[in-house]
Amino acid sequence: MRIAAATAIAIAIGLAVSLSSVVHANEEKLDYDHQEKWQSALDRAQSPIDIVTAQTVRAEDNEPLGLQLWHTQAPIEKAEDNGHAVQVNTHATEAMIRGRHFTLAQFHFHAESEHTLDAKHYPLEGHFVFKAQDGRLAVIGVMYQVGDGNPAAQAVIDDLEAKDGKLPQPSIDIASLLPNQRDYYHYLGSLTTPPLTENVEWYVLPTPVTMSEKQMTTFLSHYPHNNRKIQPLNGRAVVHHQG
């Protein structure tokens, strides 16, 4: 499937879904031990998936440019535990994703990673949820592993643990939570929590970002298991864009 055709599908069914659904605003605690009870209107293009790198399709040479972000030093609302993830709302960061303009709505974390690369999980995956003016949704998936400390990750932790309502970190460097290398795997999928809405554009970055062991432990202390199971690919194309 050509990637342009695949993207065109993404502006059809499901884009009338309100942002409250898109950003996982359902505050009810999700039962990750009984995911078979989760209901979706459609079930042919669900997320997450295992990305088998040898079976991906190389992006065509005339594809639009990949991922470009600006206003990455962004003011944030308080990091919060929303009932099924650690989430940060922020609306200043903008992006050009394959030549189209998006604005960041929020980002949150899943443990262990929801997507896998050649069946490999990472201990943590961040989802950066972007929305276009016409309602299209694009989620950038970032993998995290233990290594050097990450100041942006610490900013999230500090805000999450603040007791008096005063933000110790009023802004955050979004770029520090993403790798410098912006290669990605792109496919059409869904939200990974109910209502599991399809026609969401996914951009999974294979280069991991590090955080310290203490930082990782703090994230995992909130949610050690809030990842959806791998879903069938069902013939969907996964396109590899090498920056």
Rank of each mutant, 00 (worst) to 15 (best):
H222E: 04
D81K: 04
R236D: 11
V204R: 00
P224A: 12
V239F: 09
A132D: 00
D118N: 11
S221V: 06
N89H: 15
R236C: 04
E80W: 01
A162L: 07
T90E: 10
V129A: 08
H84E: 06
T218M: 05
K163A: 00
V57R: 11
H121A: 10
K37P: 03
L233W: 07
T116Q: 11
A111H: 01
H127F: 06
A45M: 08
N226W: 03
R136C: 12
D81I: 03
L124A: 10
I13N: 11
Q106C: 15
I97C: 02
A237Y: 00
S190R: 00
R2L: 15
H240R: 14
H186A: 15
P151L: 09
V209A: 08
K37C: 09
K78A: 15
P168G: 07
K214E: 13
A138T: 04
N227Q: 14
Y203R: 03
V204A: 02
D50H: 06
A12T: 15
W70G: 03
A8R: 12
I174E: 07
Y187M: 05
V17N: 10
D164C: 02
R58H: 10
L167C: 02
E60R: 08
S40V: 01
K214P: 06
G126K: 01
A5Q: 08
A111P: 01
P194M: 11
Y144W: 02
G14Y: 12
T210F: 04
V17R: 11
E198I: 14
Q231W: 04
D148G: 13
L178P: 05
G243V: 15
S21K: 12
D158K: 13
P179H: 01
A175S: 14
K163P: 02
I76G: 08
E63D: 15
V142I: 07
E112N: 12
Q68E: 15
A111R: 05
Q231F: 05
Q215W: 00
